[in-house]
Design a protein around this nucleic acid. Structure first.
Lengths: 221, 221
DNA sequence: TCTTTTTCGTTGCAAAAACAACATACTTAT
DNA sequence: ATAAGTATGTTGTTTTTGCAACGAAAAAGA
């Protein structure tokens, strides 16, 4: 387990916890390791999950196949990222996705029941851990809600406006940079790149905004 | 505070906690109450939130106005529901939405720091509370991810198929009922009702599924 | 510097969705 | 039972999007 400490201390879950404490917590949380070879399924749709996982190495895809067999990649998990946190809830039902290792991967398993059943005497950093998990999930929640608010707009134009408007708010300025190139932005908003590019230029021509590469400026009506 | 106990025991947050324990926990969590008149803002975009809230009575809308002044209602909060849980994270930045009372409303405030800083000696149900919050957020998270996976489909047809396919999985049967009428389903998937109705009928004519009102059946290819 | 690759805007076309309007079936209230 | 209201399906028109293809600009590499 020792060799994972340096990775874990950089994760959100163990942020602010010292090396020694991480080690004792790994024990406290009943941590176990499993390796997956490329192409192997870590979990399959229909299984029940009872652990919180952190990917230590490799790369995972969370994907689902619909009733008619169409594949859809929902998320890519990279080293240090937590997953499975949404399936810990009792009676949350079986996993609806597949989790597949697209590279040789190493996964750490934590006993979820032990995480939430606090043991302050034995493990002084337990409270910190609970907070960290809580914060991580809250953060994820927030970004999901935001993304949903972009995606629920009907047109490409409205999606763009709500996203850009939000970024302006977030960065507290009508001039700001976005972390996407055009293709990535289109993928993020689930629209066609060329149609989006077209719409952006229309908005520019209408005087609602201006941009140079990833730098945008919004103008008042 | 006593008069809120019967409401609180029915919330997810205090599920499994007895009346007396709820009362002592309200004290432990520094609970406070505030009333809002119809049309009054509980929070405004740009404010910082440091509490977890439960709506005791009335109705709230979480809404946002974009840079150009267009209003968008993101969520409706009903009595017993928790909100603000995503803004507790330190450095999570200011609130991006407005929270407005659309009816005379009563809101309970809980000190978030006290929730996560567990005090097992004084308050035996604290662990239970932490679990409940965790479960609530996880649940919310899960449904957000699911909805996002429907919404990220490009066409109405694909949105329908991914949603219906998921419901079949969830209810573990190719025959199942959905909790929406057509208009609600269209709103949920952010598509036009008549176009969706049209697409449903096409899918039926193609032999992929069948439906009577809210009861659906999916057929193998 | 020159070449290669990637990104971005632009266009035309086909497909799909939004919209509006209406007919029918179904519910609810009286 | 009847009338009013609501939900759903249907159709035609307009608008938007997706798609494919291409050239210019920018970035990355040799």
């Amino acid at each position: 387990m020792k060799k994972y400490v340096s990775l874990l201390k950089r994760t959100k879950l163990f942020s602010g916890v010292g090396d020694d404490d991480i080690l004792s917590m790994l024990n406290c949380l009943n941590a176990t390791v499993r390796e997956y070879s490329k192409g192997e399924y870590a979990f399959r749709q229909g299984e029940y999950i009872r652990n919180l996982m952190i990917l230590a190495a490799g790369r995972l895809h969370i994907q689902e196949e619909d009733y008619w067999g169409n594949l859809n990649i929902l998320n890519e998990i990279r080293p240090g990222e937590m997953f499975g946190e949404a399936y810990i809830v009792p009676n949350s039902g079986p996993l609806m996705d597949d989790v597949i290792a697209i590279e040789e991967s190493v996964v750490l398993f934590f006993d979820m029941e032990r995480i939430l059943t606090v043991c302050p005497s034995a493990c002084p950093f337990h409270t910190r851990l609970v907070k960290n998990i809580f914060y991580t999930i809250s953060d994820k929640n927030k970004s999901l809600v935001q993304k949903l608010s972009y995606m629920s707009q009907r047109s490409t134009r409205e999606k763009l406006l709500s996203y850009l408007s939000d970024e302006a708010k977030r960065q507290n300025s009508s001039s700001f940079s976005i972390p996407f190139n055009r293709q990535q932005l289109a993928d993020f908003l689930s629209v066609d790149r060329s149609a989006m590019s077209n719409e952006l230029c229309k908005l520019r021509d209408e005087g609602m905004l201006d941009f140079h590469k990833n730098d945008f400026t919004l103008y008042e009506g």
